[in-house]
């Protein structure tokens, strides 16, 4: 039969040589391999202390963006809730009153915006559905582990962006991310922030 790769070996029933039958040279060879691995660099990442950078397109913790003036971008159109395959998002819309222009960018806003973190599958479809570029999944933070039921549903207090700790990222598309990776490999970008859990 035609060989597809050169790695396959023909089976042979030849008598073993004396060295093979004694088995000791093979043992010594094997032990040389294991002791080499003993002194090799370990692949383990000590997780809570050291965190691996997951790339600029990782989908982590949700954020409801504000614009440059600090106004909430969300207009409560509900497209994210419709797009969500897990039906994790729910919201209550409200009309913007006079004097609230510095709080909400659009004339309608989400008075309540809730994400059920047990339902969310972090697919990122809400990001794609949003016409106002209000919903993003952060690439630099996880949703922390919750231990109580009332920690599961996240309201606006946890979702809306903190102006002192804005969510910014350099790469948004696959191509930009790739370019950024190349720059990082070349040493141009040195600051890869480890994620901090709030």
């Amino acid at each position: 039969m035609q060989q597809l790769t050169n790695r396959s070996k023909q089976v042979s029933n030849k008598e073993m040589t004396l060295a093979e039958r004694i088995y000791l040279p093979a043992i010594a060879h094997g032990m040389a391999i294991t002791i080499k691995h003993f002194f090799q660099k370990k692949v383990t990442i000590r997780y809570p202390e050291v965190k691996r950078y997951l790339g600029p397109v990782f989908r982590g913790r949700h954020v409801l963006k504000r614009d440059a003036d600090g106004r909430e971008r969300c207009t409560a159109c509900g497209l994210c809730a419709v797009a969500c395959p897990a039906e994790a998002i729910s919201m209550v819309a409200e009309e913007r009153q006079k004097g609230e222009e510095h709080l909400y960018r659009e004339e309608k806003y989400a008075a309540v915006y809730e994400v059920n973190m047990l339902r969310c599958i972090f697919c990122g479809l809400c990001e794609e559905a949003c016409p106002k570029q209000a919903v993003y999944l952060r690439h630099d933070e996880f949703v922390p582990v919750f231990t109580e039921r009332d920690q599961v549903i996240w309201g606006k207090d946890l979702l809306v962006e903190d102006m002192n700790n804005r969510y910014l990222r350099e790469a948004w598309t696959k191509e930009e991310a790739h370019a950024q990776d190349l720059k990082k490999a070349a040493g141009a970008i040195s600051h890869v922030e480890p994620r901090a859990i709030p």
Partner: peptide, 13 residues
């Protein structure tokens, strides 16, 4: 620990 090191891991730490 030895098992871990031989398998390129850290073992219990």
């Amino acid at each position: 620990k030895v098992a871990g090191f031989i398998q390129d891991r850290l073992g219990p730490d």
